[in-house]
Write a protein that binds this DNA or RNA. Structure first.
Lengths: 340, 340
DNA sequence: TTGAAAGCGGTACCAA
DNA sequence: TTGGTACCGCTTTCAA
């Protein structure tokens, strides 16, 4: 039984060359508008036509192998659903990078341990020019990636990571801003929602820490309260709110805040009179609540400056780790913490 | 001026071979646990150690080039922020595929026209085994991808696409389900929200079409109403609701529905007495409204069966286009359309 | 202006 | 059990 594949193999530059009656070199020159070797207009047209007719597409692997490098930026796909804020940020970043001639590849980890060598190896195989979002890497993982020639390793982290470039996004400042605001509005016993969903722990931890520090500084007390993203959990928490004796709450983000505020109201508590509520992310939906939800706005850098920074890091020989951007947070004061 | 790169080049299998005192072939055998060529335990250990010490990672491009193919599934990144529903779906699909040994690559289009040859070429360069989400491709684009040896082209579309495999997600059925429900609840003049955001037109169009068909079938009238995702737009629309004379509205999805319901209430209309409201997507937040928001639940297939189907298509020689899955929709009846 | 040929890194056949 | 080597497709130097 002949194992002849039904599908013909993809056309190569040799096929194009044959069809156009030129050499493979000429095909390469013609299609890449190479300036060093000047190809006549006539030949170029013949080559273009042949390529078109055959549906020729250059083989990325071969090109990469030959060139030795790769205008590819790797964005490790987060393994938790991302909110609209971050989703928009990624799209913008992607646009910026593509504009600068990079291919942007979001690479899924599957079940591999985040930050581990396994994952680093999977990334390193692709020999990307940069990895954006190289968070929580072990030293070994960094070594592997560096060894594979990755030019720029950019982490998104709360503080500059030694040896890496960093986009500073300090979640503790989100918690701090929220709780400072509550303390300033007169709250003394402040709940801090810690989502029960384990995949959110990486954000929830720092937010809680920041909240605690701000509470201490503002002469208030911060009390962690667990909350799962379900109506039942919210109702249960609201049910024992009076015995908790909390007069304010930072609810992790706007979605948890909306959930909790509704539950608190259903339990007969007045917002903000009995308990002030603040979220984070500045979702439009938070403004629809009554009272309108106060929130901590997180201002991610735009795609343009960030992609410019990445491009610079990739080209530049500079080895010094640098901070490629800083994320600002600001409180948006609305009715749920007593405005108006 | 010597252009010596500061960074040493990435170690190759030749480096490993040298260090372990064996040939490149043996390195390949040892590291890939090749069964045809049996390598002694001792050599294998030496090779492993050498690879480890050097931080060797095989070059994906070289491997791909040699193998001629690629266990890669391409997921074109949508260029609009995705909701939690679809985001979760993608993560699940990704997990499933990685488990089956595929590398999942989300590839951003940047500014390239969707469905065009440009885009197809960019994808084809990578020689992926499959493309999931190959929507709206021109014939030419399909030809290019086929020619590049892509085994499985799966579109997500409202109906089986001739020549492609399809995950059937018919947005018209979302609109139809919503409006049929409203008609059944007694609505006769039904508004159908059409988001002003142009990137949503691909979904809004079919939803409106389905809504119209269902209205006709239910003896009602469907009236498209424009709405941007801002409070101002919602207030403006709500302000002229009485003159529109609509007694029900399908608000495109839950987010627009929440926005509109709030605006309608602020304009003094009773939901559902004056106007019944239904969204889509079954977001948790919709349940927090008062009245609770009715919605159309969209049941995407799980990652496991879908990745199994993709795997089968990639391996299988079968050329017949097939439907790899069907998305069901179901109305979740709550208070905003009169339940309770 | 074009062609011949080397070589990128890894795999797999054939020989030893 | 291991080594030598051809080859995957493309780019680029050198020669013609």
């Amino acid at each position: 039984m002949t194992d002849r594949t039904l599908r013909p193999p993809a056309p190569t530059s040799a096929d194009v060359a044959r069809r156009a009656g030129v050499s493979r070199a000429t095909v390469s020159y013609a299609l890449n508008d190479n300036t060093t070797a000047r190809v006549s207009e006539a030949t170029r047209a013949r080559v273009r036509a042949a390529a078109e007719e055959l549906g020729y597409v250059p083989n990325f692997a071969a090109r990469t192998l030959r060139a030795g490098s790769n205008r590819t930026v790797l964005l490790p796909t987060p393994d938790i659903p991302v909110g609209p804020l971050f989703s928009r940020f990624l799209i913008e970043l992607q646009r910026g990078l593509v504009r600068r001639g990079y291919a942007v590849v979001q690479y899924g980890a599957g079940d591999r341990a985040p930050g581990g060598v396994e994952q680093a190896r999977a990334w390193a195989e692709l020999r990307p020019a940069a990895v954006f979002g190289a968070n929580g890497l072990s030293d070994e993982a960094v070594r592997v990636l560096r060894g594979a020639g990755v030019r720029a390793l950019v982490a998104v982290a709360s503080a500059p990571v030694p040896g890496l470039h960093t986009l500073v996004l300090d979640h503790s400042r989100v918690g701090a801003a929220a709780v400072a605001h509550l303390a300033q509005r007169g709250c003394r016993r402040i709940g801090v929602v810690v989502p029960a969903e384990p995949e959110l722990a990486v954000f929830a931890g720092p937010r809680l820490r920041g909240a605690r520090e701000a509470a201490a500084a503002g002469g208030a007390h911060a009390e962690p309260v667990d909350l799962a993203y379900t109506e039942e959990s919210a109702a249960e928490l609201a049910g024992r709110w009076r015995e908790l004796g909390l007069d304010g709450v930072f609810a992790y983000n706007d979605e948890y805040a909306m959930l909790l505020q509704r539950a608190l109201q259903d339990a007969g508590l007045e917002v903000p009179a009995d308990v002030a509520v603040i979220g984070a992310d500045d979702l439009l939906l938070g403004r629809l609540l009554r009272p309108r939800l106060s929130t901590v706005r997180i201002e991610l850098p735009g795609g343009a400056p960030l992609s410019e920074a990445i491009d610079r890091l990739v080209r530049g020989p500079g080895e010094e780790p640098e901070v490629v951007g800083e994320v600002a947070v600001e409180v948006e004061w609305r009715e749920s913490t007593g405005r108006g």
